[in-house]
Amino acid sequence: MRTAGGQPRILRYATMNHIKESFMKTVFLAAACASIFCVALICLFLFANGVPAIGRIGFVRFLTGSEWRPGNNLYGIWPMILGSLYVTAGAIVVGVPVGVLTAAFMAKFCPDWLHRLLSPAISLLAGIPSILYGFFGLVVMVPAIRVISGGSGKSVLTASLLLGMMILPTIISVSETAIRAVPESYYQGALALGATHEQAVFFAVLPAARSGILAAVILGIGRSIGETMAVIMVAGNQAVVPSSLFRGVRTLTANIVLEMGYAADLHREALIATGVVLFVFILLTNLSFSLARNSERS
């Protein structure tokens, strides 16, 4: 290969190589910046389309108005904000105790063979699309709640139960990781002080994993605020503040999907503004999630 004229050819090869290296490095860098670009685009398009509408309706009237009647030009999303918060709180009440205890079971109580059964089941639960959860809620849970409480069966309670089921896999897997990350010495120390296995797990290991468990809860909150299709099918979707657990409720997400298909002008912009409010909620939960996780690291 390296004949009389080898030197220049090697040089040429080296420059070619250099160009290729730096070109590809730029490509990789550009790809890495793609997600920053996407976030910027999403913010830009949502805010540019939603914020003017909030301005025209009036910031306070939009957020705290309790009437949503697009036909009469009344755009108050207070019932939807409350609705989202209610079903999310319900989901946390249902999902967190079961999820965290299941995580404790899987990390500290369960024999190996059972773990090999449970863990794929939980990852499958995480993978089941929300539309299937919604369908299940519609054909199984709604009739069941109807029998118990009367009415239509589509209610805050139904939505909370279904969302509680849906956030289970998230809560379980994140908490299990957190529980397993607690140093074994905590457990051993508790045993040495005379605690039983259960006491050691609950009073030494779980408290040490609390910031990880908190992160799991926040992740669950994010998931249930953002959940759309499943909630639409079981919540009833009345745009009024529910007076009891058995009344129908409409969430922010449902508001968008239900009316976007036919909305026009200010109505349409008000729906996009609903999306902006939802987006801000999610950014706040994301922020608290990273705070919780950072405090876990330090």
Binding site: I42, L46, I225, G226, T228, I256, M260, G275, F279, F289
Partner: peptide, 9 residues
């Protein structure tokens, strides 16, 4: 963390 409906919008 962004919910799918926001992606839809």
């Amino acid at each position: 963390g962004i919910p799918s409906i926001v992606y839809g919008l």
